[in-house]
Design a protein around this nucleic acid. Structure first.
Lengths: 342, 342
DNA sequence: TTGTAGGCGTTATCAA
DNA sequence: TTGATAACGCCTACAA
């Protein structure tokens, strides 16, 4: 058994551990990985572990990935980490459960413009076990690229099942629908819905608006679409226009609670009563929304607790190298928190 | 020149590219890495690039890391990705600038309890070029572990320079100080400061409270500390107590804008006038805070735009393998946005 | 029960 | 200007 001598300025390797423990390098690997089907004396195991500890040995993940042809990484490129409190909770639980399954979730905050096959190639360099990304950043070529690089599961996150790959469905449409239903059931007959004019939020806004429109159409109610940046002047202009129009909307779905407070102030400043003249519904049930006066009704997504189920599903996709489109629905149950504003 | 034949079920390698281009594998490496000091004909370069494109070749990052002994990863373990809008912006800019320098920032959302040398060993497995982590998750042994694994820069993020390693200083103390100064200069004489009773926010709260206390002490003013969860009942209890006490605080620093609206409602419901009886200052200048009535004054951190400077600093640390404690101050300039509430 | 040896895909040195 | 070749650290048959 001859082992190469270690270079002093390099991180310790399993060979260093082996030398210190007086065993072969293979034994080190067996012990530290609890290799099945290999019987090693407890005494040897103890020696190996002690040596690894003493050297502060950390196995080289890249070497392992190179050898095994796969990493335990689950890549999740996000457009913005500040997507709100709900997202934080969801990611935390997903990370935890994937960790139990032996995977490591890492977030890449990149440009949302980083999409398609070029982005896929960059993600593929680390040979992740799975990639979890917004559906609209994937193309057919991107999915193919990732599969070619050995990524077992390419999971789209989107409002509807993708034709390309398994999809994790977050149903923003249902949020808009719930808001519209709530307002209609309370006797409102002319709806409006705000769509944020911001790049990241815009896509979600389109979906939520779509839900409002679908529900309203089904009930034969008109819907006004209001494209709005988060900015007082714009909101004031809309409110002023409504104040002067006899056929103004009598109910507004404001996209989320932040836009709801924006609209609330604008409506009030324009002399309109909320909810007397105009009812108002936000979404996401942000903690501070209940503190406004009048309190803002909010559509709340339920089921953030089931990130564990998502993790298990992803784990299954990785194991089975599932490629045909499959669907997992998450965060699609929705409920309204009625408050004074509607 | 003999090249092994490729296995059909494996991702394409540089050997596959070489075979397709009709050159040697080394040439592929030279071309794709723009190797300096190597002259290769434009014709060959074109052939190689075309072949790589055709195969969808993505270099194997693990193999490169193994060979070079270092990855281009900058690891940033965070306790919670939903740290607020400011954090999102900062991370985005940091990512962009580090990308220009050739590094890839990845966020690991883990347990905040994952700390010390055990956590360091897990981070070290990927042999990151740098690790960027909250100061209180590092110990001397953890820093040593990372250095031993070849991590060039271990950067602590904290309220004050660490004795262990270079530190990125985010000065929450300055926020509290600015709030106290503002209130004192407006003639307020009995201060109170809210400290959130939540795990992640709590640490920041302590610092901000410390700033209030320091400034108040310097001016000979008393400070009441209010530990508070984000919950209406608790806030109401505090407000009720104050309403009944003649020597109640005449000014409150509410930790941030969310807690400010919580206190605002509680104070109003208890019959106290804001800012007549009690002035109120929040922090972080969240966009919707200006929409409340009365509008909430806020302490704003300036300099989120300088994440680029931080990236350059980290790049320098990596290049120089700096190990003696050095400091970079970021987000320490602070200004007050005065509104009706104070 | 433990050791030997080959190879994962890349980079970089040295010949040609 | 390009090609052969030797590591990098680890895993895992297979041999002892």
């Amino acid at each position: 058994m001859k082992l190469p001598s270690s270079r002093p300025d390099r991180p310790p390797t399993s060979v260093d551990v082996a030398r210190l423990a007086g065993v072969s390098q293979a034994t080190v690997s067996y012990v530290l990985n609890d290799a099945p089907g290999v019987r090693i004396s407890d005494e040897t195991r103890a020696k190996v572990r002690a040596a690894a500890d003493e050297l502060g040995y950390a196995p080289h993940a890249s070497a392992r990935a190179l050898k095994t042809g796969r990493s335990d990484l689950v890549l999740c490129p996000v457009p913005d980490v500040a997507l709100g409190p709900l997202f934080g909770i969801w990611i935390r639980e997903l990370t935890a459960r994937l960790g139990e399954l032996g995977f490591r979730l890492v977030l890449l905050q990149g440009d949302a413009a980083e999409r398609g096959v070029a982005a896929a190639r960059a993600w593929a360099e680390w040979r992740p076990a799975a990639v979890l990304v917004q559906a609209d950043r994937l193309t057919r070529a991107a999915v193919r690229q990732l599969h070619a690089a050995g990524t077992a599961a390419v999971v789209a996150i989107g409002p509807e099942p993708s034709a390309l790959t398994p999809t994790l469905v977050f149903d923003d449409v249902a949020i808009g629908r719930a808001a519209a239903r709530h307002l209609a059931e309370r006797g409102r007959v002319r709806l409006a819905a705000v769509v944020p004019s911001e790049p990241v939020l815009g896509d979600f806004g389109e979906r939520r608006f779509g839900g409002v429109a679908a529900e309203a159409t089904a009930r034969g109610l008109p819907v006004e679409r209001v494209d709005l940046a988060f900015d007082e002047a714009g909101a004031a202009a809309v409110a002023a226009r409504w104040a002067a129009a006899p056929d103004r909307p009598d109910a507004v779905f404001a996209y989320n609670d932040e836009y709801a407070v924006l609209m609330l102030r604008a409506l009030q400043d324009a002399g309109l009563d909320v909810p007397g003249d105009v009812a108002l519904v936000g979404a996401d049930d942000l903690p501070w929304a209940a503190l406004l006066r009048p309190r803002i009704s909010s559509v709340r997504i339920i089921g953030a607790g089931s990130a564990g189920g998502t993790a298990d599903w992803i784990g299954g996709l990785i194991r089975d190298r599932e490629r045909s489109p499959a669907v997992h629905r998450e965060l699609t149950r929705v409920e309204i928190v009625p408050r004074e504003s509607s």
